[in-house]
Design a binder for these strands. Structure first.
Lengths: 356, 356
DNA sequence: TTGTAAGCGTTATCAC
DNA sequence: GTGATAACGCTTACAA
């Protein structure tokens, strides 16, 4: 049984109207005026397209036009709230501009990344937005991709690659956090890091180091953790709590890390913020509902996504546009996880501040 | 300047080897044996493909083969942790099976859903996984899609559509929660719902109603809320706390709702769980770190994704396979947000239990 | 004002 | 064993 109601192609519609495919194509692509198609045929075509539920074959169109109107999005973990939000914004903006998005999850694994980049290449995406996994790995494949189509890096930079990139000011975020803590009388400020070797993490660590040094404070023995999970945060915080340096405050370079720190502190019978103050990175809906509500360094995730797409579209429009880099500002959201030691020093903190 | 290092197509590679495209195609698609290509040419082609970084044009291939090896994924909000996790699992499984995924966010809006379904249609996805927005809206478009390719519904059912579907047992989840509370001496059990009219929500509400009735408990005046946000949860919980029914426990039909309930309780000076016990739906990394740690009805999100893809692949393989429906079990994770009223009745709960 | 034909890069069929 | 050739459905010179 043949389905007579199957959505017709441009071609079949043309045939059924006794017109050539060319004419139909011209009308459908809005070129009716340019080709001086008669109003009558134009309307006939338009009307029929409407009623018949015509669906033009995008594959054929892409093949002919040499552009697919699709972009690739490669991120290390779609389920990570940061990347999920980023993906949402990018998809929405892309759709607004007529592009569809092929997503792939590199699983924070260079091998998988290479695999999906190859996939993006043979799917002929017009452009690519990538949060790269390593600092090096995929560069030869990426170079090949970038040679033929615009690519923009997001959240993570590849310093050696001359690609457009959009990141937020991780380094400044860490400085902001440290300054906030110092102002409130903290001096032994630890850092619980995420995945060393990734751009955002290393920038934040660098910012923490710089801010500490500028204030004349030591950082030796105050860096803990490896990985972005709750478990990693807990492990890092356990080490931190038992360390000889006896930090009074900690930066958690990711929100899940903060959760781990909270857990560890509770287990050890330390109060947050009285015994250990905490500033965490990346705001989440639940951050303000924790006890205590978390003081956060927040990055504008939706803006990152929007800008990434803007950068891509810019270069999709003018292929010779230079690859630009933009850095977006971050801000500190003060809530309740930082104790002011100047006002009423924490009772359970035995060691006095070493005056630098 | 011509880029001599541009990745060659099958065609150009054939030319440079002095072979026909047909031969190269046969070798690359693993048909060398079937066509009795000589080992020599086969190896020559394979070797050259390797070194030159050949990239076969997927568009042309799809056009010819009438299949794109891509599937569409339409969900109401990628940034929602539930759908993010679902998307991750679906993308990973799809990739393992050679499919790429075009995602689109319907923004919980029937109009947008219609738009993206049309997009999926003209992108010629081989199959579609959809978490539908309304109960009706897109059905004509969806019918058109489903007539030509397999579609599977996930998380949300369209009762009238005869499509494959995979959901978790929302109704039983609610029953589980109610039973858990009743066992612990609760009788006035409220429900803070999400988006009425969506499948998961309505099933959970129905489960709550059924379980209450079976236990001889009333539900009148105990249903609150509308929407899945923290704010909606807070508003619902405020009403709940001031209601004449004076509930001692609440089901929050979404984890963000639970956050809102927690906030409202705090504002009102009520303790959780002593004054108000809480069971929330859908586990999250932070749920166990809240104070109190949340008792949760958990659905197996990754399994949902995996099963959705399995169902799709099954019908991609045998187009005549009947559209099956599967329901996945949920479980209760007991943590600390439910107070046992039998042991030591909450001090601040003035009204005695109405014995049914 | 519209049609014809070539071509985008594959693969299947038929030929040799 | 391998090569022509046609076709997938569209767009765009070029013709008429």
């Amino acid at each position: 049984m043949l389905d007579v109601n199957a959505p017709p192609s441009l071609k079949s519609l043309a045939a059924s109207l006794g017109l050539s495919a060319a004419t139909v194509s011209r009308v459908l692509s809005g070129q009716a005026a340019r080709y001086r198609i008669s109003a009558a045929t134009r309307d006939r075509i338009l009307a029929r397209a409407e009623t018949s539920g015509l669906v033009v074959n995008h594959l054929a169109r892409s093949l002919r036009l040499q552009r697919t109107l699709s972009i690739g999005l490669v991120i290390p973990d779609i389920a990570n709230p940061f990347f999920a939000l980023l993906a949402r914004e990018i998809e929405r903006q892309a759709r607004r501009h007529g592009y569809s998005v092929i997503v792939a999850d590199s699983e924070e694994d260079p091998a998988v990344e290479a695999e999906v980049l190859a996939l993006m290449q043979n799917r002929h995406v017009d452009g690519l937005i990538l949060a790269p996994v390593g600092t090096s790995a995929a560069t030869t494949l990426l170079r090949a991709l970038a040679a033929t189509r615009p690519c923009v890096l997001v959240d993570r930079l590849l310093p050696q690659a001359k690609l457009a990139a959009i990141t937020s000011d991780h380094r400044h975020g860490a400085r902001l956090a440290v300054a906030h803590l110092i102002e409130r009388g903290h001096a032994r400020i630890a850092c619980v890091q995420g995945h060393p070797g990734t751009f955002a993490n290393d920038e934040r660590v660098a910012g923490w180091r710089a801010a500490m040094r500028r204030a004349g404070l030591a950082t030796a023995g105050l860096l803990f953790g490896a990985g972005y999970s709750i478990a990693a945060g807990r492990d890092g915080a356990r080490a931190l709590l038992e360390s000889p340096a006896q930090p009074t405050a900690a930066l958690a370079l990711g929100n899940l890390l903060a959760l781990g720190v909270l857990q560890a502190a509770r287990e050890a019978g330390r109060r947050v913020p009285e015994d250990l103050s905490l500033v965490a990175f990346d705001d989440q809906p639940w951050a303000g509902v924790m006890t205590p509500p978390l003081t956060i360094i927040d990055q504008p995730i939706a803006d990152l996504g929007r800008e990434a797409l803007a950068l891509l579209l810019e270069r999709l429009g003018r292929r010779d546009a230079p690859p630009r880099r933009r850095t977006l500002p971050v801000r500190l959201i003060e809530r309740g996880s930082v104790h002011d030691r100047r006002a009423r020093p924490a009772a359970s903190s035995p060691t006095p501040d070493p005056t630098p």
